[in-house]
Each structure stands twice: as C-alpha cells, then as structure tokens.
Amino acid sequence: MTATATATARRPDAAAAPAEDVIEVQGMAAGYDGAWILEDIGFTARRGEVLGVLGRNGVGKSTLVNGLLNLGPTVTGRVLIKGRDVVGWPTHRIVRLGIGIVPQGRGIFGNLTVEDNLRLALFGARATAANGWTLERVYDSFAKLGQRRHVSASALSGGERQLLAMSRALLTQADILILDEPTEGLAPMVVEEVIVGNIRSLRREGVTVILVEQNIALALDLADQAIVLSDGGIVFCGSADTLKQREDIQNEYLGV
C-alpha cells in the first residue's frame, strides 16, 4: 500500500542537494471577515522535509494552510512558494506552482467516480515540472483504487478516500503536499497503512510534506521540523527531535 520503489530512484540527488526553502512565510496574518486568527506568522519549509503543524483544536492550523493557498481566509504578509510571493493569487495559480492539498474532510467528490476525481487533477495540472505521478502509477501503487476506479467515490471507505485524496493531490503534479488532519476518522491500523507508510515513501522521493495533525506522537514521529501554534501565533519552531524532548511545550500547548 505504499508508493512504488521505482519512485525512490527518480530523484537520487534528493538527499544530497542543498535543502532549498520551498515555502517561506514572513509576517503573515490570516483570518476571516476582518478578524485575524493568526498574526505575525513566520516559518520556512525545506525541500524534501516533513513539517509538522501542531496545536490544539481551533488554534488556526487549517486557517494557516488554507491561507497558503488562498483557499478561504484573508491573508496579508509574505508567502513565498518556490520564491514567488503568492499573496492575493487565485488558488489555481498557486496550485500550479506545484503545491497540492488534501483538505480537512478530504474533499472527495461523491457525485463523481473514483477515476473522475483523479482526472480532475490531471485536467488542472499545469505545473512546470511533472512529478512522475500518472493515473497508471496511482493504480499500480494503490491497487484498491484501481479496482474501484469506475465506482462512485461515495462508496469508498475512509482509508480509501484518504488514499484517493492524496493521489489526487499528487496528480496535480505537486512536489509540496499539504495534508490537513489526514488521520481524522481513521482506525489505527488504517493510519499505519495509509498515512505513515505513504508519508515516509513520499519523503524518500523528495516531496515536501506539510502535515497538520492532532495526533502528536504520530506527527513527531514523521516530521523533521515542527511548528506549534497557540493564541494566534507560533510558540515553537524547530526540529521535531527537540520538540520531543520539550515536555513543557507539549504539556502547555499541545495538551499531552
């Protein structure tokens, strides 16, 4: 159930290349209807890293990642994606820079077949560089989706929906992937199979992953870097290993 091994060889220089900042956020504020939920946000994500975005419920994690793509919230400040300041851009143009999202709730179209859900992403794909993901590769990697390609997407299980949403985001030819609470509503076994395995193999491929999670243990296990949100700002920004040691921060801001 993980992405194929052939993918690993695709970008052999991933580990060796100097890690470039693919997302750079400076002085960002985001909110709805004139009320700021987040203020003075700054962080960077480097190519090929998994960045955990952590914090209690309702602290604005989704506002942050949706704000990166201009997917709802009002945003000010600077949001550089691959060096381009995208504040104010329409969502589809930002996505075409090679940044895909699996939104909270997954955003699967239940009135469409599995295959049509995937083909939407190919229809929209205009990223300058292809990331190697094709319909065939999705079906090879995730046999369940291949078997059910002509079935209505509403008939899929939670785990299959998550796979579909991740595949769909990859088919936009993204090499930055935002996952907004991917484990929500999934059984522990499915989480292990669908989320953990796939994030690891994507990381090996050099995909940058922004992982918004409630499940702190899982996020710290997968992430290289982490940011912790509280009271509308960032209260921790550093390596996941450091955060693992900082029980004080975990207790105060993550309610562990």
């Binding site: 969502t91 589809h92 996505v95 009135n111 049509d116 229809f123």
Partner: peptide
C-alpha cells in the same frame, strides 16, 4: 472530463480550484 469538472464545481468550487482548475 469537462462535465466532471462542472459537476464537481456544483458541489464545491474551492476544492476544484485547489486541483489547479480556474473555476472562473
């Protein structure tokens, strides 16, 4: 596929935008 795009837009244009499609 064009019809699928339209039917998807009926449900949620934001998600369609997030797949790189210019819904305008």
């Amino acid at each position: 596929i064009w019809g699928a795009v339209v039917r998807a837009c009926v449900v949620d244009t934001r998600i369609v935008e997030a797949l790189g499609i210019n819904t305008k």
